[in-house]
Every structure is written in C-alpha cells, then in structure tokens.
Design a protein around this nucleic acid. Structure first.
Length: 270
DNA sequence: TATAGTGTTATCGG
DNA sequence: ACCGATAACACTAT
C-alpha cells in the first residue's frame, strides 16, 4: 500500500533493474488498469524500445523510452507494487514489507508486464487494480514533490481556500506525495487539528507543518516505508497518543479516515 | 456476510 | 470558473 517512500523504492527498482533492456512483449490486456488505452496500444508503442530514465514526482512515476518513444506512466494506486523477475529466479521488488503474505513467484495479480529480450519481466502486481499504466500521463498537473518542496511553495500550497488542512495536504495538485498516513503523522507532529481550515492556519502552524512534512518524508524515505511513523499508534489497536497517552479520536477529512490526539491537536482559535 | 482500506478522479452543488 | 465534498472504482482481508 504505497505512499511516497514505497513509490521511491519502486522507482529505484526500475532504475536499477529495468533500464536499457529491450522490450520484446507487453501484457496490456487489463483495460481498467491501462485505461484509456485499448489492449495492444501500449504494446505497439513500447515494442522494441528500452526504458531509459525512471522519474518520480509525488506518488506518480514515469519512464522515458528510447528512440523518442512515448512516456510510460506508472501509478501504484493502493495495492500496487513493481516486481522484476528474471529467468534465473532472481526477483527484485524493493523489499516490500507490507505484502509479505505474497509467496515468491505468485504473480496472480500481475496486471501489466513488460517482457525483456533475455526473458526477464517487469510486472505491476496489483490485487485491487487501482493502479494505473498509461502513455504520456499528465504530470504537469502535479504539485511540487514533497521531498523537494521549498518553503515558498509550501506556503503557497496552503494559502488559498477554506478546505480542512488535511484535505489540502492530500491534494496532489497542491503538494505531490502526501498520503493518508503521512498526513496524519504530519498533523500530529505539528500539533495541528486536521479539520482546521487552511485560511485559519497561523504562520506558526504553517511553519510547524513544513518542518513536520520534511521530517516525516525524510525519515520514511530513509526507512524505506511509512511503517516507522510514530503516529501509526494513533490508530487501533494502540489508539493512544504516543506522546501523552491520550485516547485518540477518529473522523473523516478529505474523504479519508483520520486519527488525531484531541489534547494536542485542538480546534478553534489558536 | 458486512465493512474498511497507506489512492485517484469524475461529477455534483454552492 | 473556482472550490470542496462525495461516490465510484475493484478486490482482499478481517
């Protein structure tokens, strides 16, 4: 279940193990994952090319292809992962802790695949099929990447409108790369209530949110996933603030389940 | 059997 | 046109 750190792992897997290998076959039969492309369209566009560069911005990835080929967009959705399997049995998957249940060699949920000239395969394994493969994805709509965002960009992302701050943190057009768990962690770390409208954030709160974002992104990318976030214990079965032991509270903001510490993350005037 | 889920997006209403 | 809320998407795990 990828957030930005897991997507960066996947990008690194592609960078390490897929670039420069000639594509001799493409499985693009899954009309949902490959929408809006009809089966065969992505195959025709990629056949006999190589992936040359693997990019990531927020939770979106894309690869450049050889001979001025199309851009291949890859999004992991909620349950996607990239696995590269070679004929010698080698399997590169970036060390995915969150789907250990999947037995090695179980490719039941492969929704898209590139086959290389040596018989190796790059696969999108995605049980829920909320991932996405498409040509020439609209990357220009993404906000600045959360790992590289400047203070000015961060302030601008929280500047206009009345949305709850959590909804804005999740808006990939505002900032690219913050998912539900990271958003809860950032708000908890900055001691800001998730429902506070962005136009009621004080400069001090914005500053604290920026620091918390940088900390959360930096540490989770370093750790290779969001599993080390302290705020995870805001959720059941622990469900107590790791700092003060207060029982946590649950609600919905930006359409996502949200947990917070009612003692430290208060509503109302600052 | 019912429900929630670490994500995105089309659509609707103000 | 802008902004925000909601439902829908597809499938597994509990």
């Amino acid at each position: 279940m990828p957030e930005l750190p897991e997507v960066e792992n996947a990008r690194s897997v592609i960078d390490r193990a897929a670039l420069g290998r000639r594509v001799v076959d493409v499985d693009d039969h899954d009309r949902w994952v490959c929408r809006p492309h009809p089966p065969g369209q992505i195959k025709a566009a990629l056949l006999n090319r190589e992936l040359t560069v693997a990019h990531r911005q927020g939770k979106s990835m894309w690869c450049e292809t050889s001979e001025d080929g199309p851009i291949l967009g890859i999004h992991l959705g909620m349950s996607g992962k990239i696995v590269i399997a070679d004929p010698d049995g080698t399997e590169v998957d970036g060390g995915d802790y969150w789907e250990r249940g999947r037995a090695a060699g179980d490719y039941r949920f492969a929704r898209f695949a590139l086959e290389f000239a040596d018989g190796g395969r790059l696969m999108l394994i995605d049980p829920r099929r909320l991932g996405r493969i498409r040509l020439d994805p609209p990357i220009e709509l993404l906000g600045p990447d959360a790992t590289a965002i400047t203070p000015a960009q961060f302030r601008a992302a929280l500047a206009r409108g009345t949305a709850p701050v959590k909804a804005r943190l999740l808006d990939q057009h505002a900032i690219a790369g913050i998912g539900n768990l990271l958003a809860d962690d950032i708000l908890w770390r900055a001691r800001v209530h998730p429902g506070r409208p962005v136009d009621e954030l004080t400069p001090e709160m914005v500053e604290a949110l920026l620091r918390a974002t940088r900390f959360a992104i930096r540490t989770t990318v370093r750790d290779g996933g969001v599993h080390t976030l302290g705020s995870l214990s805001l959720r059941p079965p622990e469900a107590r603030c790791p700092r003060d032991g207060t029982p946590t509270v649950q609600g919905t903001y930006g359409g996502r389940t949200t947990w917070w510490c009612p003692l430290e993350q208060k509503e109302g005037p600052p």
